[in-house]
Design a protein around this nucleic acid. Structure first.
Length: 272
DNA sequence: CACGGATCCTGATGGC
DNA sequence: TGCCATCAGGATCCGT
């Protein structure tokens, strides 16, 4: 589920409700990608101060100190409620609080919940320090984006997915943004003209902002931490549409594989 | 250093 | 129905 819009919609759905809650207990299921990094019981008694997001990480700030870095991986989702059914086999982390229980369900277990004493801790830095700028924030500056693209020789699709230039663009929105900008996913980043980089910059912001606005994914069955699903009004222009006519020019959409991930594009609308 | 590829894990789907 | 192969919205690590 989770690219930036899904993570952000998840955050927005429970951040205000959990703020101020007292931690009453922590339950763990099977191991996730990384160990929690602290005894679960050591979190009892702390207060949840706020929930932020950095890239695809949820950052749960605790008082008087500490934070939980939560990543949803490929298949993770979060629910927050006062009453939850008994934990199932894919529920691997749960924070019980005075205001409700926060539960991470993640069948593939590529996700993680990691504790750090401070945001500048080695653990936190390792996970966060290499992340690129937030696409919906003020730091996503066109001139910087253009300069970063000039410095990279790999395919633009891979540059977007790597998250070192700009975070939050996953496999779906990478294809969608490149379609919107009219750029072939295989085009090497440094060969993109400044004008086309500007189109891509705008496209990334637009596609992500619109997806957040719609309440999460435009595809499949995403729902936020309260169980509410998105509006599904946007439909993908290219993602998962191999063989179907381009919505602009009717040319059949193509699928290819880059870095073991599917890429979709219109061979007519997207050029080198 | 920069890049490509293998890798972690489980479930859904489609072909035979 | 069962069995097998393929694919899935992520990101790190390792070898060249």
């Amino acid at each position: 589920m989770p690219e930036l819009p899904e993570v952000e919609v998840t955050r927005l759905s429970f951040a205000d409700r959990i703020a101020g809650a007292q931690v009453l207990g922590v339950s763990l299921g099977k191991p996730l990608r990384w160990p929690l990094g602290c005894p679960p019981d050591s979190l009892v008694g702390r207060q949840v101060q706020s929930v932020r997001r950095r890239g695809k990480y949820l950052l749960i700030d605790l008082e008087p100190q500490g934070l939980l870095l939560m990543h949803l991986g490929m298949s993770g989702s979060v629910v927050f409620d006062r009453y939850l059914p008994p934990a199932g086999k894919h529920d691997h982390f749960e924070l019980q609080t005075s205001l409700g229980n926060l539960r991470l369900n993640d069948p593939r277990r590529f996700g993680a919940v990691v504790y750090a004493e401070h945001q500048a801790d080695a653990v936190a830095l390792k996970l966060l320090s290499r992340l690129g700028v937030e696409p919906l924030g003020e730091d996503f500056v066109l001139a910087d984006f253009q300069r970063e693209l000039k410095a990279r020789h790999t395919a633009i699709k891979q540059v977007l997915l790597a998250g070192e230039v700009v975070v939050g663009v996953g496999n779906i929105y990478a294809s969608e943004a490149l379609f919107m900008a009219g750029i072939r996913p295989t085009l090497r980043a440094h060969l993109i003209s400044r004008a086309r980089a500007a189109k891509l910059h705008a496209a990334i912001r637009q596609v992500l902002a619109e997806a957040v606005h719609q309440g999460g994914s435009t595809l499949r069955d995403f729902s936020n931490a309260l169980g509410e699903s998105g509006h599904f009004q946007l439909s993908a222009q290219v993602y998962d549409r191999a063989g179907l006519p381009c919505r602009l020019c009717e040319t059949p959409i193509k699928r290819m594989v880059q870095q073991q991930r599917s890429t979709y594009y219109c061979p007519q609308c997207q050029t080198f």
